[in-house]
Amino acid sequence: MNFKAGLGCLVLSLALFGCSKPYELENADAGAVAGDVGMVNSTGLYGANPYQSAGAFGINSNYTGNSGLGDFYQDPMYGVNVIGGPSGTERDRVVYFAFDSSNIDSRSENVIREHANYLRSHPQTMVVLEGHTDERGTREYNIGLGERRAYSVKSYLQAAGVNPQQMRVLSYGEERPAVWGTDELSYAKNRRVVIIY
């Protein structure tokens, strides 16, 4: 009988642990919670920046995290003089989207075109296409929308002659915002695909 009671406690503990909130804001800036457009802190909202590691999915990455990422949405130089490949700036590796859309606009086409040129000339290079959304919508819907956005970029790259085996699609949905805020400008900066080398 003690074995069954112990097993029941173990199952209950695992169930409660599985239902807990994994991204609770414990030490975040009060201003960020109130809708401040700035970054939460240098370690990121969810702890240490995972992009600081040796690479996403074993791919050698020189992506330095999202410090300032998203500030390019209003930049008039976004989509102009883009450098494709890993030597491009953060601005050169972000593709923005309209609300609830996975359609690519003309400024973003310039960004994708330069990466297609690089990837065609470097067939051994791999990229991860990370899809992101703003916080509106359910978690499940946003994961799907982020995935559709990443596949939209992949389709464009593939149509431009990039081997589909060079690309991986990953969706974070609303889980990794570029900026923290509840205004339209913040939402616009978070609706993106990031190209990771």
Rank of each mutant, 00 (worst) to 15 (best):
A32P: 06
V33Y: 10
G35Y: 05
G35Q: 05
D36R: 14
D36V: 05
V37F: 14
V37I: 13
G38I: 09
G38E: 12
M39C: 06
M39E: 11
M39K: 07
N41M: 10
T43K: 11
T43A: 07
T43V: 12
T43W: 13
G44E: 00
G44F: 04
Y46D: 08
G47Y: 04
N49D: 15
N49A: 13
Y51G: 01
Y51L: 07
Y51M: 07
S53C: 05
S53V: 04
G55M: 00
A56M: 12
F57W: 12
N60L: 11
N60Q: 13
S61K: 03
N62S: 13
N62P: 09
Y63Q: 01
Y63F: 15
Y63E: 01
T64E: 11
G65N: 05
G65M: 04
G65S: 04
N66V: 07
S67E: 10
S67N: 13
S67T: 10
S67G: 11
G68F: 03
L69V: 15
L69S: 05
G70N: 00
G70W: 04
G70S: 13
D71Y: 12
Y73G: 02
Y73D: 03
D75K: 09
P76T: 08
P76M: 03
P76G: 02
M77A: 15
M77L: 15
M77I: 05
M77V: 02
M77P: 04
Y78F: 10
Y78A: 08
G79R: 02
G79A: 09
N81T: 07
N81P: 00
N81A: 11
N81S: 13
V82H: 00
I83K: 11
I83C: 08
G84A: 11
G85C: 07
P86L: 01
S87V: 15
G88Y: 07
G88S: 06
G88F: 02
D92H: 09
R93N: 14
R93P: 07
R93S: 14
V94I: 14
F97G: 02
F97Q: 00
